[in-house]
Design a binder for these strands. Structure first.
Length: 641
RNA sequence: GCCCAUGUAGCUCAGUCGGCAGAGCACUUCCUUGGUAAGGAAGAGGUCACCGGUUCGAUUCCGGUUAUGGGCUCCA
């Protein structure tokens, strides 16, 4: 006599065991039809799950987040079924749900082609149209292994062998296709209404680069065609914001084959870069930092002593001269310790905050390079704080404060914090790691900010707090980091004299707020779709002469603005005003100032924004104060289009 | 580094089933002196990424290299 409790608290009692979907049907035929799966006592189950005892039941439809996951997961199975029908010799492996979609990895002797992808998608649609019933059965482990082995599915058999003995195994079948799966799945393939295969990729078996490479097919799936269309439009929007395209169009920077992963900054891009650097410099000056500059090329021996060679020597650029081997620095920390080590330091010198716009090079794998977002030559807004153990908490909370202040000035408010703990590959004793992780945890707890744990993702020398932010179209970028280091100062012989006269090793905090300036600028460009806020815009205003007769008046206006410290040019070309406006608006210049006969006569400018807003004619003084106000706000106010 | 794809004018892209390479925009010159997102005309511009092979002939087919793109691994 199961008594079933629904989410709204209502209860239904049945004389004998019922399936979940039967309960849904009792509530309403519409709900039964919409049922994708159910949640029974907190566990996701298939719609036909037999409820024998009292239970809490929640029906999952496509409107629930879990429902969408189930749709995507079932789409992965549909993909595998289509592939097996078209290419019987392909072996199935795994097919999980990912953000916005799903994928399935296959072992197949030849590469899939884009034409194959079309054929597979067509077959998927056909199978969905057939509305095949999805059934499932629990199966004994050894029988499951035998089943897949006999079907030639070696990978699947290996997957089962790696599943713990105690776990029950479930086989899901639809038509001629059977796959091992935890489930749940949609009741029938007709429930899969809006999907699209998106890309082909290679992927290592079990994610290990020593293993053979499988072929991965990615797809996206949504409850209905409208949601699918919206998703595809979002992708198109992201593509329009691509910093590589915008960078070229606005003449900010370029890359070329002779220097892969290294940026050629053009005049306009470099203005943005310098503006950001100067902003950070001002922040640091008011927070008690010293700024230093250290060599690009340092003898190998220092990197051996610091532990860098053994931990990530692979990505270090090496060079040599006169039979000595040098490394091009991939990080600034060992160099900063060298400065710290000059002269005897007292506990009175701590905390010592040493910053550098540190130019670093890392020989990233060629396949990892990506515009400004992943480069080989970059500049960190780096700093190292040498302090005592007792100062850690104050310093770290000061840093969190700095990070939030800076992000706000750049117009980012949605910041996520993650605490990354000890990785497998690390230096230092477990005791030190305990101490370091606890110090960071305690500081985070004291801030009352929300944060989450990211186990195993710490740096090799210490745990860290990472800061990620969400941009205007919802993407998340990891930027800032605060890393505790109890190891490197000792390795490189840093010490200070404690109050009792003894020598002690300082704790070092590695930190960056923006991470790499290159990467940050890439993020900013995408966030603003190229329309950088006034304080960062490479050109803040262009003065446009209406005809050649206003050339002198327009030049004068431009000169006045330049003398006031603004980045301004004049456009005196013999072109129509429409053309000039179009060109500069497309270059995302915040303000376009038109000087025609009327303005020249009244000593005013007609002001128009890059987004098309006409502010009318105003005296130059009035425009200047507008500029000053807007710049003072930085990104904290509006983010105009 | 691994898998797949791509590389044609400054940019965006056509095209050649192997036979002297095209468009739009940009550029140059001329005309136009125009009031808020493209005024008109003419001209110039390419070793079809690089190296090798097949071929009477290769931008096209094949192999290699390189860069870029999408993934995988990595991201200290």
């Amino acid at each position: 006599m199961p008594r079933i409790t629904l989410p709204d608290g209502l209860q239904r009692t049945y004389p004998e065991p019922v399936t979940a979907v039967e309960v849904a049907a009792d509530i309403g035929p519409g709900l039964a039809k919409a049922t994708l799966a159910v949640e029974v006592d907190g566990k996701l189950r298939d719609a036909d799950f037999l409820i024998r005892d009292d239970a809490k039941l929640r029906v999952i439809t496509e409107r629930d987040p879990e429902g969408l996951q189930i749709i995507r997961h079932s789409c992965a199975h549909l993909l595998a079924q289509a592939v097996k029908q078209l290419f019987p010799e392909a072996q199935v492996t795994i097919g999980p749900v990912v953000e916005d979609g799903f994928y399935y990895d296959f072992a197949f002797p030849r590469p899939f082609t884009p034409e194959d992808l079309e054929a597979i998608e067509a077959r998927m649609k056909e199978l969905a149209r057939q509305d095949l019933v999805v059934s499932h059965q629990v199966i004994d482990r050894s029988r499951a292994i035998a089943f897949f082995r006999s079907a030639g599915e070696e990978y699947k058999a290996r997957i089962i062998e790696s599943i713990p003995e105690a776990e029950p195994l479930t086989l899901y079948s639809q038509g001629d296709f059977t796959d091992l799966c935890r489930g749940p799945h949609v009741p029938s393939t007709g429930r899969l209404k809006a999907f699209k295969l998106t890309k082909l990729a290679g992927a290592y078996w079990r994610g290990d680069s020593r293993n053979e490479m499988l072929q991965r097919i990615y797809g996206t799936a949504w409850p209905d065609k409208k949601a699918l269309k919206e998703y595809l439009q979002r992708l198109a929007e992201a593509e329009k914001r691509d910093h590589r395209k915008i960078g070229r169009r606005l003449g900010l920077f370029h890359f070329q084959p002779e220097a892969p992963g290294m940026v050629f900054w053009h005049d306009h891009g470099w203005r943005v870069y310098q503006e950001i650097e100067n902003y950070i410099r001002a922040q640091l000056q008011s927070r008690g930092y010293q700024e230093v500059r250290t060599p690009q090329i340092i003898d190998r021996s220092l990197w051996e002593k610091s532990g860098h060679i053994s931990k990530f020597g692979e990505v270090m650029f090496m060079t040599q001269s006169e039979e000595r081997e040098f490394a091009i620095k991939p990080m600034n920390c060992p160099a900063h310790i060298q400065i710290f080590n000059q002269g005897l330091k007292s506990y009175r010198d701590l905390p010592l905050r040493m910053s550098e716009f540190g130019s670093c090079h890392r020989n990233e794998p060629s396949g990892a390079l990506h515009g400004l977002l992943r480069v080989r030559g970059f500049t960190q807004d780096d700093a190292h704080i040498f302090c005592t153990e007792g100062q850690i908490q104050d310093e770290v909370s000061g840093l969190i404060d700095l990070v939030f202040a800076v992000y706000r000035d750049f117009g980012f408010s949605d910041v996520q914090i993650r605490l990354a703990t000890r990785p497998e590959n690390r230096v230092g004793s477990d005791e030190l790691w305990d101490q370091a992780e606890n110090a960071l945890r305690a500081t985070l707890e004291a801030t009352k900010l929300e944060w989450s744990l990211n186990p195993g993702d710490g740096a090799f020398y210490g745990p860290k707090i990472d800061f990620s932010l969400r941009d205007s179209i919802g993407r998340v970028w990891q930027l800032g980091t605060i890393q505790l280091d109890f190891s490197m100062p000792a390795r490189l012989d840093a010490s200070y004299v404690a109050p009792d006269g003894s020598r002690k090793v300082p704790v070092m905090i590695h930190r960056a707020v923006l991470g790499s300036l290159e990467r940050f600028i890439g993020v900013l460009i995408e966030h603003h779709a190229g329309a950088l806020p006034l304080w960062l815009a490479p050109l803040q205003a262009v003065v446009l002469s209406l005809t050649e007769r206003q050339a002198e008046a327009a030049s004068t206006v431009a000169e006045i603005l330049k003398n006031q410290g603004f980045r301004v040019e004049s456009d005196l070309r013999n072109e129509t005003i429409s053309l000039k406006i179009r060109e500069h608006a497309m270059q995302r210049v915040p303000y376009l100032l038109i000087v025609g006969a009327r303005e020249a006569e009244n000593r005013t400018v007609a002001v128009r924004t890059r987004s098309g807003e006409d502010l009318g004619a105003m005296p130059l003084e009035q425009f200047l104060s507008r500029l000053r106000n807007e710049i003072a706000c930085r990104g904290r106010n509006v983010l105009e289009g």
